[in-house]
Write a protein that binds this DNA or RNA. Structure first.
Lengths: 124, 124
DNA sequence: TACTTAAATGCGACTTAATCGCAACTGTAG
DNA sequence: CTACAGTTGCGATTAAGTCGCATTTAAGTA
């Protein structure tokens, strides 16, 4: 999916800041936080946050907070869940789990917390 | 469960700040954030956060961030999941869901995001 | 190609969550 | 009653996120 198409689909202006931000998100292909990328950003941080908000309200990205108290952002290419390890704090993307449904609710995102495979094995 | 017992089980000192904080958490019986209770707190906010950390490392409370970008804390009396509505931002406690397991992981907490029952009905 | 304008940006100030170092204080074991 | 490790209050600090405003820019239109 090209950046031009993504933007056009949502009827947004394609600015250099937005191109930059989308390129970063596409390239990373995993949840990233502001701190991870602030040095790469040429745009002002206010612009960063305003575009994050814009993208979120257009369902282009989702975000969640990890154990390190930082907010992570990720492109919503392919919807999937995340697992955050309480020990090593690693964020793992899980394969889409489509059997998670709650009667009466529309579930759009799931974040699991607990102990990941690696840490479980090391505790044996 | 009495506060004295909770503290004693964990080999922590029972200070007035900790009694106050636990009383608040017990009384609320739902996830609360710093802002919700800061006016009630007689302790310093550094003390608040230090005790939150202490309680967390002793598995007495868990925390998660909601859509309002505030961190919510809750006593781990009875483990259960939470549903955060992307529309009304309400945090709901769900009944313990014990059929959620991930092969190879230890799941300790689940946060769902999506659209809650109320908002779903209103969108019809 | 130039014009127009709503939307986007940069900047600086601001708010607030969360943390830190340090001196003073306080539970609790002995 | 005492000693001391652990806890607290305080003030300063860091960093995420927001806001208002002047300036700039993308993109449609003539």
């Amino acid at each position: 999916m090209q950046i031009e198409n993504i933007i056009e689909q949502k009827n947004l202006k394609l600015t250099s800041a937005r191109r930059e931000l989308l390129e970063i998100l596409l390239k990373e292909n995993k949840p990233i936080c502001f701190e991870d990328i602030k040095d790469k950003l040429t745009m002002n941080k206010a612009t960063f946050y305003r575009n994050i908000l814009k993208f979120q309200s257009n369902d282009m990205i989702n975000s969640f907070e990890s154990n390190d108290k930082k907010r992570y952002y990720e492109l919503q290419n392919s919807p999937h869940s995340h697992f955050i390890c309480n020990i090593c704090n690693t964020i793992e993307c899980l394969k889409k789990i489509d059997n998670i449904e709650l009667e009466g609710y529309k579930v759009m995102d799931v974040v699991f917390k607990g102990i990941c495979k690696n840490c479980l094995e090391q505790s044996r």
